[in-house]
Structure formats: structure tokens, C-alpha cells
């Protein structure tokens, strides 16, 4: 029997509503619940955008002195009952903030994502991961910084850039596409839990004091991760998950 992800999201929303910091997340889930339900019934898919999250705690932020305003999660999840892992499980997190530097106001964004390569036909054909067309190995489910949303953000009025209207010698943070770090697959329930835990551990721990929250997360982990861990006994699956770097 296929699990009912919309029902579980509805239960998650009820718990999130009990914590003031996640009220907006619950609102967004409830607002989109009808759409989630029809997507799930029709195609075993779910697509969400701009799901508000509590902002990360103000610690170790760059640039110094910046203020955080908002954080959002976009996701695409696709389940095929015959597969042992999600067909598609993609999550994109965006954090927004600003830096008021007296004469200049900087609009700031941070982007990170959890990607899956399984939906790509080339990847499906290459069950052992050897025929991955990317020069750098892309693990089946991987963490990576950036993404298309970041590319779009950095395309206009972005500093540092060339040409540049600011003169002088300055330092800036640079970002390259790697590394693509293998991660376990997540469904939207586990992704929300993961994002909450990474953005603000205090809020996340308050949620974990609700038995309803813990039960939902435990059920989702049992459903998705126990079969996944079992499949890791198979070397072919290990290589599909980790990519061609996996030799054992």
C-alpha cells in the first residue's frame, strides 16, 4: 500500500502550528494541502515552493553585521512504489538577509540544495554509476551549494562582479560547484525536519518534545531509511548511491 504523504504533512502541520516559530510553515503547508493531495493522488509526486522556515540562528554569519530576514524551502518529490528509493527528492533552501553598510544596502541570499540524479535517464541506464556523463561524480542523493536560484540572484546588480563600479582592493567569498556530498534520501517530512534542525536547533528541539512530531519523523525514517540501509549491503546499489568513487 502506498503511504499517504499528504495525510502525514497534515499531521506535521498540526504539530508545527503548536510552535510559534513554525506557524508560518504550517500555514504554507495548509494553504497548499489541496494541491499536494491532488499531485500525490495523480502522480505520486509533490512539488512545493516558498515554504517558509525559521531563519538560521545568528551565528557565524557572513558578511559580519548582516541581518537575516527569511528562509524558504522549495521541493520536488516523486515516489515510485517499485523503487527502493525516491525517484526524485530535490530540496532547495534559500536564506535571505541584508547588510546595511551606511551608504550601501546589500541584499543577501544564501542557497544550498539536496539533489538527486536518479530521475536523469542517463543515470538510470548506468545502474553502476560508471556512465555518469558528469566529469565529477554526482552521488545519487547529494548536498551541494548554489543552484539555479542562486545563479539568477547573482546575475544582476551583484558584487563582486566585472565590470565593477567600486574601486580599490577588496576580499570576497568565492564558491565553486563542489563538493557534492552523498546524503541519505529525504521525503518532504524528513527534509523539513532536517532544515529545521539545521536552521535553528532550539526550535527543532522544542518540536521534538511533542510526541506527535517524533512519531511522524520516526515513521518517515523507518519507511525510507531502513530499506535504504538494507540496500547498501548490495555493492551495485552502493555504487549507484555514492557514485563511481565507491570501490568496495
Amino acid at each position: 500500500m502506498v503511504f499517504s504523504l499528504p495525510d502525514e504533512l497534515e499531521r506535521l502541520s498540526a504539530v508545527l502550528r503548536r510552535e510559534p516559530a513554525t506557524n508560518a510553515t504550517a500555514d504554507a503547508l495548509d494553504t497548499n494541502m489541496g494541491r499536494f493531495r491532488s499531485q500525490w493522488i495523480n502522480n505520486r509526486q509533490m512539488r512545493g515552493s516558498q515554504l517558509p522556515l525559521p531563519v538560521p540562528r545568528n551565528q557565524g554569519l557572513h558578511p559580519n553585521g548582516c541581518e537575516l530576514q527569511a528562509s524558504y524551502l522549495d521541493f520536488q518529490f516523486e515516489w515510485k512504489e517499485e523503487e527502493g528509493a525516491p525517484w526524485r527528492a530535490e530540496y532547495q533552501v534559500r536564506v535571505e538577509g541584508y547588510l546595511d553598510a551606511d551608504g550601501a544596502l546589500f541584499e543577501l541570499q544564501d542557497h544550498w540544495r539536496l539533489d538527486t540524479d536518479m530521475y536523469a535517464p542517463c543515470r538510470r541506464v548506468a545502474a553502476d554509476g560508471n556512465a555518469n556523463p558528469s566529469k565529477e561524480p554526482h552521488p545519487l542523493f547529494h548536498f551541494q551549494r548554489g543552484g539555479h536560484a542562486q545563479d539568477a540572484f547573482a546575475a544582476v546588480d551583484f558584487l563582486p562582479a566585472n565590470p565593477c563600479t567600486v574601486s580599490g582592493v577588496w576580499k570576497g567569498l568565492m564558491q565553486s560547484p563542489g563538493p557534492r556530498i552523498p546524503v541519505v534520501p529525504l521525503d518532504p517530512i524528513l527534509a523539513i525536519d532536517f532544515c529545521l534542525s539545521q536552521n535553528d536547533g532550539t526550535i527543532w528541539r522544542r518540536l521534538r518534545n511533542f510526541p506527535e512530531y517524533l512519531d511522524l519523523i520516526e515513521s518517515a525514517q523507518s519507511r525510507l531509511w531502513l530499506p535504504f540501509f538494507a540496500q547498501l549491503q548490495d555493492q551495485k546499489f552502493r555504487r549507484t548511491w555514492f557514485g563511481p568513487s565507491m570501490l568496495v
Binding site: R205, R208, N209, F210, P211, L214, E218
Partner: peptide, 9 residues
Amino acid sequence: GADTPLAGS
């Protein structure tokens, strides 16, 4: 503790 809430036991 915070990582092992009673609610989960």
C-alpha cells in the same frame, strides 16, 4: 537531554 527527549521514549 535535549537530544533524547522523554516524549520519544
